[in-house]
């Protein structure tokens, strides 16, 4: 009994640590090798960069010769815009579904839940047709629209649960105070679901940032390419510029890491303590 009890946490830790290593290893490998010369990358891919193998040629190429700044700006604007739309529209829809009983509300909720189960890429062809007929091909707007649609179902699903947990008394107290429904939403509901918003933000932004599929079919132009698409130019059919690929991948981690750090600070608990006893 005693042994198994002591073994339990050990086993759990061993499992988690090995998972962490497996998950982080490829990323560390990319970062190490982005600082090495081409020769060293192929000779000893697992070793850390040292004085002999240290080389910034990849970064020089990425930052110097290509239009990487444009790609970065594109990625950032698409991610931030989509994120903003998903959070605002998602929270508003979740509030409507959680708070108001209107005919068809159950159907709408179910309809949105289906959006979680069916991957949006199945509709790529129709999406392409729609975007073309809207004249939005090769624009960032097309990407923002598609990513907003992609992120909304899960956002609404998660936020609705959180909003439903906010005590009714708070909303009713506000209504007695003569506060409008809009202001209840902005001044009471939104601040109280901040941790949930942060969670949804993290879930939403990472697939958007990393996506290659939609940039490739909806906005493949030089001016509208995102980072993931831009990196492809270094991957050729016969020759791949590994220095540049690894350097751009390393750089691509930075903005999303910063965004993640911003949101993860919001993931604090106990925000509602003191509201109701």
């Amino acid at each position: 009994m005693r042994n198994s009890r002591r073994l339990g946490p050990l086993a759990v830790h061993a499992l988690l640590i090995s998972y962490t290593i497996i998950a982080l290893f490829p990323i560390l490998l990319i970062i190490f090798n982005s600082f090495k010369s081409r020769k060293a990358i192929f000779k000893s891919p697992l070793s850390l960069p040292d004085a002999n193998t240290f080389d910034l040629v990849g970064f020089e190429k990425v930052l110097g010769s290509s239009s990487f700044d444009v790609y970065f700006l594109n990625s950032i604007s698409v991610t931030v815009m989509s994120l903003a739309f998903v959070l605002v529209l998602g929270a508003m829809a979740a509030w409507a579904l959680a708070e108001y009983d209107f005919p068809g509300s159950d159907f709408v909720a179910l309809f949105l839940a289906i959006g979680i189960m069916i991957p949006i890429r199945l509709g790529s062809v129709s999406l392409l047709k729609i975007i073309v007929s809207l004249g939005l091909i090769n624009t960032l707007t097309a990407l923002v629209l598609v990513y907003t649609a992609q992120g909304l179902p899960l956002a609404i699903f998660i936020l609705r649960e959180f909003i439903a947990q906010i005590p009714d008394d708070l909303k009713e107290a506000a209504r007695c105070d003569g506060v409008t429904e809009y202001r209840i939403f902005w001044s009471i509901i939104l601040p109280l679901i901040r941790p949930a918003l942060a969670t949804v933000a993290v879930f939403t932004m990472i697939p958007v940032w990393n996506d290659l599929w939609f940039p490739l079919i909806l906005a493949p132009g030089e001016d509208t390419a995102t980072v993931t698409l831009g990196i492809q130019q270094f991957i050729g059919q016969y020759v791949t510029d590994w220095n540049a690929v690894l350097a751009s991948l390393t750089l691509a981690i930075v903005p999303i890491l910063i965004l993640y750090l911003v949101f993860s600070r919001q993931l604090i608990r106990g925000l509602t303590s003191g509201a109701v006893k």
């Binding site: 008394d169 009713e172 107290a173 007695c176 003569g178 925000l271 109701v276």
Partner: peptide, 18 residues
């Protein structure tokens, strides 16, 4: 409620926590 010009004190206090 606000047009009725009432004010209510709730059992749970219902203070805005933030």
């Amino acid at each position: 409620p606000s047009q009725r010009k009432i004010a209510m004190v709730f059992q749970s206090y219902a203070l805005y926590p933030h």
